[in-house]
Amino acid sequence: MPNRIVSNIQNIGHRVIESVWRLGVASRFFILVLLKSGTSLRRFNLVIRELYFTGVLSLIIIVVSGLFVGMVLGLQGYETLQKYGSESAVGTLVALSLVRELGPVVAALLFASRAGSAITAEIGLMKATEQLAAMGMMAVDPIARVVAPRFWAGVISMPFLAAIFSVMGVFGGYLVTVVFIGVDEGSFWSQMQSAVDFRFDILNGFIKSCFFGVAVTAIAVFEGYDAPPTAEGVSGATTRTVVTSSLVILGLDFILTAFMFRGVG
């Protein structure tokens, strides 16, 4: 028995060291991607192609989820607020929760599972089928030609997707509370407008979504590039992308929120 405990402890230690190791490799890879971004910025067509796959194809899920999240917020907020007779504040509730938190966070989570996993699978498959090696043998750097455009496309689309999510959410809340339930339209908007501040709420939400975009795409391209070149390797990497991104998004959200809203409001 003690032997088993020792080996368990060894196992844990081994895994910790392994994770730190991977983090180091990932950071070096991230810097490499940044250094080799010149090509994708000069030949912007490469990025536009990837914008289509990461941004445009994520639109539907973002729009639909945003609408529903906003509608649920509206319903729940109305139920709670009407007990205190302040149901006109439902606009404030919907807008603030979306712009500050739910917009960037939920959009980033959806983005990680829709676009992030696709990026990982694509790069991993290109590696498994030796397309990356072939590119290297053709004197074309795969990081500059394949990884960097995907990275920048992800970084660019994330803030847009988060903004679209928030707008759809506010619209969903408006739909449920004003159109269906009949909360006064004027006070819905005016309460929202007097409570939501451009710099503190909208700009901070925007900054958050930028951070999330960088984090999710960096994880996605790294997991793809680092995937073992087999079918199991690629599927494992895809799962890891979604799990790691989700955890990083939530952790990062806490840190950013603590920085941004500390002692304010």
């Binding site: 941004g55 807008a95 712009v99 689309s157 803030p159 847009f160 997707l161 903004a163 679209i164 928030s166 707008v167 506010v170 908007w189 929202m192 407008q193 939501v196 501040d197 451009f198 709420d201 909208i202 939400g205 925007f206």
Partner: peptide, 13 residues
């Protein structure tokens, strides 16, 4: 995306 950001800034914010 840009329109969404503008709506957020002007209409909501």
């Amino acid at each position: 995306g840009v329109i969404a950001l503008m709506i957020l800034s002007l209409k909501v914010g």
